[in-house]
Every structure is written in C-alpha cells, then in structure tokens.
Design a binder for these strands. Structure first.
Length: 432
RNA sequence: GCCGCGGUGAGGUAGCGGUUAGCCUUCCGGCCUGUGGAGCCGGAUGCCUGGGUUCGAAUCCCAGCCGCGGCCCCA
C-alpha cells in the first residue's frame, strides 16, 4: 500500500490548516464587506463545461476520467465556469447585479513545484450584470483589500485589457480562432512564432507593428504608458476605446483607495480564453508566480445558454498565499488549543473527572482531559511543554467537597474553588 | 511535457564499497503513590522501490517513484 499522497497533493497539518483558515476568514470578511454571497459548486464537473472556454493550456492539464456510466468528468481546474453556469441557470431570475463568492479546491495535472500543486484552493469574487468600469475597479479593490488585510505589504498589480490586442486583430480582419492562437503565442513570449504565424495568415504590417509595440509597452508610470499607448492606437479606433476603458478602470481603482503599485501592460494576455475585457494579475515582490488573477468575461454566461450577462471577477490563490506567508514571511501559525489540562490523581473517579470537564466546557472554558494515565508531575510537564496556562487537579479531597484545584502555571499559584461557584471559576480562569 | 539536483528513524543530519549505520531533537518508560519545563537511566522507529555490478552495496550503475529548483504556463 503506498503511503505517499498522490503527487502534488498535500496533507495539511494543523499549522497549515490554521493559516489556511485565517486566509479564508479574511476573504469571507471581504465577501461581507462588499456584498458577495458565498456559494459552493461540485468539485467534479462535466468535461465540456471547461473544455468550452478555458483554453488549450488548461484543457490539457485537467484530471479527466469517466464515471461508471461512461460520462466524461473532470476535477475542476478553476471555478469561474461553474459560477457562470449557476448564474445562467438557477439564478437567471435573480435581480442583477449578482455578486457571488467561493472558496474551493481545484485540480490541475501540472508538474508540482513551488507554488504549483495539483490540488490547491482558490477564493473568488464574481460580479455579474454590470459593464461599468466601477465593477472592474471593484474587483481590484477586493483584491487589494484581501492582500492588505493579510499583511502582504509587497503586493503589486499588473493590469491590461485583452480587448486592445483583440480589436486590432479584429479590425485587421483576423477570425477568433486565429486571434486566440496569436494571443496565446504572445502570452508565452513566443514572439518569433507569433510574427511567423501572422505573416502566414497575411496580416498587414501596420497591425503587426502596432501589436509588437504594445506588447513591449509596460511600466509603472501610468501617464507615460497611457500617452504612448494612445499614440500607437490612434489609427485603431475600436482598440483605442478599449484603452480608454482601461484608463478609466485604473483611475477609478486609484480613487477607491487601491494603493499598491500598478504595472500597466496594454499588451498583457492571459491563458483563459473567456476573458474579453480588462484583465489583471496580482503578485508580491520576490515571487515569480502570480497570487491572484482575473478579468472581464462578458460572453461566458451567454455561452452557457443564459441571457447575455456581463461578468468580471478574480481568483485568489489561497494555497500560493499560504506558501508565501510560510516560506517568505516566516509566519508561524498556531492552531487554537485549550490552555487548560484536567488531570485526576489515581484514586479519583472517572465520573468526577468527566463531570468537572463537562461543567467547565458549559461555562465556555476549553479543557483537555488527561486520558493516558499520566501522574500529576508528568501531566504538569506535558501542560508546560504544550504552552498551557492552567492545570486542574482533582483527587479524592476535591471530589468529596465538590471542588477543583486550579493551578495557574504562569503565576505559579494554586487555589481551590467550588464547582458550583460559577463566578469564582471564571475568575480563576481569568475570564472576568 | 522538458531539463538539472536530490532521497539515511517522526524532524534535522553524519557515513559514500566491508561500521553493531553514528549524532541532535522528538516520542515512550523508569527514577517520581498529588505538584514545575531540569537531570540521569532505559527503550522505540531508518538506508525510497525494483533490477544490476561485486566475495560484499546505504555507498557504484540503470529504471521507476517521490521531493526540490528551472523552462513552459498558471492561482
């Protein structure tokens, strides 16, 4: 029997779970702060749901299998497609806008390495029903808030608009499939192959030149980038409109308090094919991979048979953030454990021990009961080792009088209190 | 999917053709019949898997598996 976990899938030990919970907690706080309602969708979905619009790269990297009836299923590689499906079916009568959030495990058949696991968690925000730049900017805001609340001080954004490149290609008469091909090559920095392909399909040289200039245009100086981009795009009116849209989104986000460096990248492309507007990634200095990514997808709900519904959202890489905090920030998460150990001496009754434990827990005091037969000295040693604060000792004396002896390990004091005296018990455990 | 490096008790490591496989931490028991992290004594768990070379393999070779780093891509 193999005792390893499957490749790229991790057992999460108490410390890691504690940190993961903390990240999830922050994400849920932000859900509430902005009005995102959390939903859950199945880990397993039909192959077609993702094959439709996720893009070549992801399609090849799905865990793909058949169930006993021969249906083709996958472990979800991401969640946006599932959310869009829900919006296009069960929520089609909901008043818009619809704000949905999720926290879910995802699976990709990648080669595992730092920050890349075959099983990982994403926390997402999806906003449906608005084409306003205010909606795009909101996604940047929630991203900024989550990172800020987690103390990720070195965060930055990389922001672009897929419509800029697409509209140039469109205006030059390139069909959607060829567009995907070109964008995917550009995204992978395969510049030579991209230009070869573009000349193969007979794309005019003005368009090629504009694309090449745009993908090199990138930087933190917003004013300069926008000015140069406007210049490049002056002959391309539709692409120019997308640029103006991007500018408005960025300026709105800045006004909303998104106070992190923004690298403006008009030529940015992304792997997911459903994006058709503003796109972004969010990362931290010193880490190559991005920790959050998202953008606008105005045609996805429609693709799933819903009425035309614009959408914009992001997917935060909980697992990546977790590894970053553990490895680079040296965060030392502590699972919450009782600070009180209850130990009985050999001749006290188990019934009394159980009664004491029950009574204290009813008062809201977490208690760990000594169950391995340790005698008092060893029990105290154990409590100290675990960093506990109190040891309760009960023996025949206490049982007769209905008392407990509470030892405060920090103050090195010990008092006896009646089990029935709620006030004194709470005092003894420093609860009032 | 590709390339590089690596795998010794639970964790960290030494050994790198012949060792009883050593050390530190941890864990368990005793000293200790109801009171302090100590100390001392005792104990438990290991050479990733499978082939090959050799009189002899943790050690050398091959393959696989797993881990780490890089490419690619992504969260």
């Amino acid at each position: 029997m193999p005792l390893d976990t499957p490749r790229g899938m991790d057992d999460l030990l108490p410390e890691e779970v504690a940190l993961k919970r903390k990240i999830e907690e922050v994400i849920r706080e932000v859900f509430e702060l902005y009005g995102y309602l959390e939903i859950e969708t199945p880990t397993v979905e039909y192959y077609e749901l993702f094959a439709a619009k996720s893009g070549e790269e992801i399609r090849e990297r799905m865990f793909d299998f058949r169930d006993k009836a021969g249906r083709r299923l996958v472990l979800r590689p991401e969640v946006t497609a599932s959310i869009a499906r829900v919006v296009s079916t069960k929520l089609k009568a909901w008043p818009q806008p619809i704000r949905l959030g999720y926290i879910a495990d995802c699976y990709r058949y990648d080669e595992p390495q730092w920050g890349r696991r075959r099983r990982f968690w994403q926390g997402g925000f999806e906003l449906f029903g608005s084409r306003s730049p205010l909606a795009d900017a909101e996604i940047l805001q929630v991203s900024y808030d989550v990172f800020s609340r987690l103390g990720l001080e070195k965060q930055f954004f990389k922001i672009g608009h897929i419509g800029i490149l697409r509209n140039i290609l469109e205006e030059a008469g390139v069909g959607e499939e060829d567009q995907n091909r070109i964008l995917s090559l550009l995204d992978r920095k395969l510049i030579d192959e991209a230009s070869e392909f573009m000349s193969d399909i007979g794309l005019n040289s003005d368009a090629v030149a504009a694309l090449m200039k745009l993908i090199r245009l990138e930087g933190r100086d917003k004013e300069r980038i926008f000015r140069e981009a406007r210049d490049i795009l002056s002959p391309w009116s539709k692409a120019g409109e997308k640029l103006e849209n991007l500018i408005e989104i960025v300026e709105t986000a800045v006004e909303a308090g998104v106070n992190a460096p923004m690298i403006i990248s008009p030529g940015l492309a992304r792997g997911l094919e459903y994006y058709d507007g503003f796109i972004f990634e969010q990362g931290v200095e010193g880490v190559q991979v991005s920790l959050n990514g998202g953008g606008r997808y105005d045609r996805l709900v429609e693709l799933f048979g819903g009425k035309p519904t614009p959408g914009v959202g992001c997917a935060i890489g909980i697992t990546r953030i977790m590894h970053y905090m553990l490895d680079k920030l040296s965060v030392k998460p502590r699972p919450r454990e009782p600070e009180t150990l209850l130990v009985g001496v050999p001749r006290v009754s188990n019934r009394y021990i159980a009664k004491v434990a029950g009574r204290l827990r009813k008062l809201g005091i977490p208690v760990e009961v000594e169950v391995t037969g340790k005698r008092v000295p060893s029990a105290i040693e154990y409590a100290l080792k675990k960093g506990m604060k109190f040891v309760i000792i009960v023996g025949e004396k206490e049982e007769e009088k209905g008392e407990i002896s509470v030892k405060n390990l920090e103050r090195r004091t010990q008092i006896e209190v009646l089990l029935s005296d709620e006030k004194r018990i709470l005092e003894a455990f420093e609860r009032i």
